[in-house]
Design a protein around this nucleic acid. Structure first.
Lengths: 96, 96
DNA sequence: AAAATTTGGTTTATAAAATAAACTACTTTA
DNA sequence: TAAAGTAGTTTATTTTATAAACCAAATTTT
């Protein structure tokens, strides 16, 4: 009856990051931190998990002299997100 | 931007239980275990949490000679569920 | 220019959560 | 009456989320 909710996406912060990355070409660390309100430490950990799962790509470069970590969602990530939403709908269909 | 996802509801099993209880008058322990596929131990713990939060009411009785734990959603629970879904929609609006 | 502060993170430690395994008390079946 | 099943609870373990502490480089202050 209930499909599994991908545990990697069923996390408030990771879901927020994925949600943002779905709507932009790419976003840097500071932008994600501001938009989500997360601490840098937490964000760093969660970005790492998403990257290791292949859901986002992470690029470290420099903007002027300051380091800049840029994230973008991957095809795999988009697919996983869509499947997560599809599963989730089963749980919340009463209120859709 | 992103509203908090009520951590009590943002759990696969508790969400499944709430989802079921939204659609029925009441449901007993065994029914919930079967429908969710959860282990009895896990279900017991999660039911307890939902009850302590006032999201469900729990009634322990006997069906014949066998014990029977019956759960029903409360008004508080319905409201919390609706708020959770409303917050969640922000995260997944891309795919709705 | 040296010291203090800020920026952009990462690593490590702690708190909280999910889950399973072990257990209890009773019932049914062989 | 012994073995197995039912309906759960309690306890222990693993996993996860989160924050605190840290680091290196850049910037600002004195």
């Amino acid at each position: 009856m209930f499909k599994e909710l991908n545990p990697l996406l069923h996390s408030e912060l990771r879901l927020a990051v994925m949600s943002i990355l779905l709507s932009v070409e790419s976003a840097d660390f500071v932008f994600l931190r501001e938009q989500t309100g997360a601490t840098a430490g937490n964000l760093s950990v969660q970005i790492d998990k998403l990257q290791k799962a292949g859901y986002i790509s992470v690029n470290k470069s420099f903007k002027g002299k300051m380091p800049c970590t840029t994230c973008a969602i991957t095809e795999t990530g988009i697919k996983a997100f869509e499947e997560y939403v599809s599963a989730l709908k089963e749980y919340i269909k009463h209120d859709l």
